[in-house]
Design a protein around this nucleic acid. Structure first.
Length: 412
RNA sequence: CGGGGAUUAGCGCAGUUGGUAGCGCGUCUGGUUUGGGACCAGAAGGUCAUCAGUUCGAGUCUGAUAUCCCCGACCA
């Protein structure tokens, strides 16, 4: 992509009202735009990052036999009345009434939709287990959206729902999904700061599990066990003085962002909708369920909170909007155009700063945008090109004809 | 939902005792520049959040409303 063709521009203006690093850097870089409190547009660069996050999650959900669907955001009132949540979740539901008097809500989650849907296809133990997921905009009337993109009223989420014949089967699948979640966070470069966390579980299970990423920008407080890699949420700390995993009682306190949450729903939603199955002996039993959420736009903000410095964002290669930022600081564009053409031909994703602006602007924008690899061509580099990792302070000069080989080798 | 702060050009802001709105960035034109956010000259760009009131006259004073930010409460 030539930067002169890019829809967005960067801004060096700081918005004094916006204090969170993720909002400042994502807005200044032209990744997102705020429409209103807690509601953001994903601009081309931001959309590309979210696409990459989404694809990683998709691959890992597919790997645990998830099947992708897309359920509607606009949902009829009746489904919510059946589970009692039209009233119990009233405070966070965006409700709509049309001219005919029909009422709807914009979905804050999809149990009320997925369970009646599953009922159409699950009749027998032979239809189980099954797991379906989607990427979807969720709507929650947060009283106070905050922290930039971390706590929105409309946000992107991956939600998966699993259906089982027995609790044992749910337990086993729950473990598989936990492992899949940890693989996602590893691929996103968050493995060292993300903790599987025990949290309050609701009616049917003692605990749910959250995936908490440690950063000062977090709004949750967790206690990280000094004996293992597990943590517990402060909301259950008083009733859980010992680590549920290793039994130790020494913890380190940290602020963290909840980037995922998984629940054993058991029969909480299958019962109100009459979702059951016939087992091998002919008995009619309720379907056992689990649900598994992960916030995509929240991950976008979290990665920025974790991976930035005073100059801008430092994207992990797996999610960067482009892998290479090609900067032409030369008066003519002959060599830079050639480099751009050869990188494109080799399938390297590259943002080419072909703008007629001063070197300082281009270098500053490269730091702000935070693409992993920076390639500079100028009078000074002569027949060489300069290659630098955003995450490292030092650059190196390499011969022009070795550029492709260098960029396609890890750890330049 | 409680407390505090804010709303003036695309963005960031100033605007004194009330007298008809300005700066920086950005944008456009011309010229000079080119390794860390260059310079000169010129130009365009405004329902001063909204509504009501006080006044000869309101960005400025009064009231209401809306929206945004921060702290707290809340968060399947």
């Amino acid at each position: 992509m030539r930067q002169t063709q890019l829809f967005t521009k960067t801004s060096k203006q700081l918005n004094q009202e916006e204090t969170s690093a993720n909002a400042q850097l994502l807005v200044r870089g032209g990744y997102i735009d705020k429409l209103m409190a807690g509601v953001y547009t994903l601009l081309p660069l931001g959309r590309r990052v979210v696409d990459h996050i989404e694809q990683i999650i998709r691959e890992e959900m597919d790997a645990v036999a998830g099947q992708e669907v897309s359920m509607p955001a606009l949902q009829p009132k009746d489904n919510w009345v059946k589970t009692g949540r039209w009233d119990s979740m009233r405070d966070i539901l965006y409700t709509i009434k049309d001219e005919a008097g029909h009422e709807y809500t914009l979905g804050p989650t999809h149990e009320e939709i997925v369970v009646p849907l599953a009922k159409q296809f699950i009749q027998s133990y032979k239809d189980l287990p099954i797991s379906i997921y989607q990427f979807q905009s969720k709507f929650r009337k947060e009283l106070r959206p905050k922290s930039g993109i971390l706590r929105g009223r409309e946000f992107l989420m991956k939600d998966m729902y699993s259906f089982h014949a027995t609790v044992e089967d749910l337990d086993a699948y729950y473990e598989r999904v936990t492992a899949a979640y940890l693989r996602v966070f590893t691929r996103l470069g968050l493995q060292d700061v993300t903790y599987l966390t025990y949290a309050s579980g609701g009616v049917f299970s003692k605990y749910s599990h959250e995936f908490q990423t440690v950063t000062p920008a977090g709004e949750d407080t967790i206690y990280i066990c000094d004996g293992c890699r597990l943590a517990i949420n402060h909301e259950i700390r008083h009733e859980t003085p010992h680590c549920p995993s290793c039994g130790k009682d020494q913890f380190t306190t940290a602020k963290a962002i909840e980037v995922g949450n998984i629940f054993k729903l058991m029969t909480k939603f299958s019962e109100p909708f009459g979702l059951g199955f016939t087992d091998a002996s002919g008995a009619r039993l309720p379907v056992i369920m689990g649900c598994y959420g992960m916030g995509l736009t929240r991950l976008l903000g979290t990665i920025v909170e974790i991976d930035h410095d005073e100059k801008g964002i430092i994207w992990p290669e797996a999610v960067a909007p482009y892998r290479v930022h090609l900067l032409n600081l030369s008066k003519d564009s002959v060599q830079a155009d050639a480099a751009y053409a050869s990188l494109q031909a080799a399938g390297v994703s590259v943002l080419y700063d072909d703008r007629l602006v001063s070197p300082g602007v281009k270098l500053g924008d490269a730091d702000l945008l935070g693409l992993p690899q920076r390639v500079v061509i100028s009078q000074k580099t002569g027949t060489n090109v300069e290659v630098k990792l955003r995450s490292q302070p030092d650059s190196q000069l390499i011969p022009f004809d070795q550029l492709l080989a260098t960029l396609t080798t890890p750890n330049v």
